[in-house]
């Protein structure tokens, strides 16, 4: 029987990018297969909020180990709005990690927001939606949705709102956040360029007292350029990122979707 159950679908995982699930082929003992309900589908997302807009972006590659499963699998989803086209939606959810959980999470949140509109006759605010998403994740904390989520929209004052989550529902509102495979590559870049970390007044004298540059809300064009730079750089350094860049810009007028190709190698 040992020989029989050693058959596995050829989905070897690259060892360096995430933890390998235990596959006890070694050491002669009887091979036991156990079902592991998660996988990592790679990819990366990021979100930046401005004074009157929020931009959420993600690459469109989906991977399994060293395989590119598809070059176009969006990680950005409109939440709410009318019907399957989400007409009039003003909230965007991005999910990265285990794609099937991401899809399930997206469908649940969308259902909640649609029912809210049906029952209350008005759209859900991003603030409320953000808290609801946290509860959905937390309720499944013992069998979590294996995703890093970023939620974006416009708050009740018309200011860009961005919320980031861990897989079990811990969340906070931020100016910018990168998630997924290349988060560790993109986040320091955003820290530096958006929150102006490690940038000081150029003319001030050297020393500990040297004043930090204060972050200012960025304009839309600058943010779009930052996003493109972040992703073109991530593509160079991470094999699970590439193929296409999908961007959603949320303003008071709705959601504008942009797509541009990335390197396919």
């Amino acid at each position: 029987m040992a020989a029989l159950s050693s058959y596995s679908m050829p989905t070897e995982q690259p060892a360096f990018s995430f933890q390998n699930q235990p596959q006890s082929h070694a050491s002669g003992g009887p091979t036991q297969h156990s079902f592991y309900p998660y996988t990592d589908n790679g990819g990366s997302t990021l979100g930046i909020s401005g004074s009157s807009f929020t931009i959420i972006a993600g690459d469109t590659r989906m991977t399994s180990g060293y395989n590119i499963l598809t070059r176009y699998a969006p990680k950005l989803f409109r939440i709410g709005g009318e019907g399957p086209e989400h007409a009039g939606a003003k909230i965007v959810l991005s999910v990265v990690g285990f794609a099937a959980d991401g899809q399930a999470l997206q469908e649940r949140l969308d259902m909640v927001v649609k029912m809210y509109r049906y029952q209350h006759g008005k759209d859900m605010s991003v603030h409320a939606c953000a808290q609801r998403l946290s509860h959905i994740l937390y309720n499944k904390r013992f069998f979590p949705y294996y995703v890093q989520a970023i939620l974006g929209g416009i708050d009740e004052e018309g200011v860009g709102a961005l919320y980031s989550y861990d897989p079990v529902g811990s969340y906070e509102r931020e100016q910018c956040r990168a998630a997924g495979a290349a988060a560790s590559l993109i986040m320091p870049f955003l820290d530096n360029q958006v929150n102006l970390k490690n940038q000081y007044e150029p003319d001030a004298p050297q020393g500990l007292e040297k004043p930090q540059l204060q972050p200012q809300p960025l304009d839309r064009q600058t943010v779009e350029e930052l996003v493109r730079d972040a992703f073109t750089s991530a593509v160079e350094r991470h094999i699970e990122v590439g193929d296409g860049l999908q961007m959603m810009v949320i303003t008071k007028d709705g959601i504008e979707e942009l797509y541009s190709p990335l390197k396919q190698d």
Binding site: P84, M111, K114, M115, Y118
Partner: peptide, 13 residues
């Protein structure tokens, strides 16, 4: 009816 139509959208798209 709302629940049933959402369920149809969800399970069969």
């Amino acid at each position: 009816m709302k629940q049933q139509s959402l369920a149809s959208r969800l399970t069969y798209d």
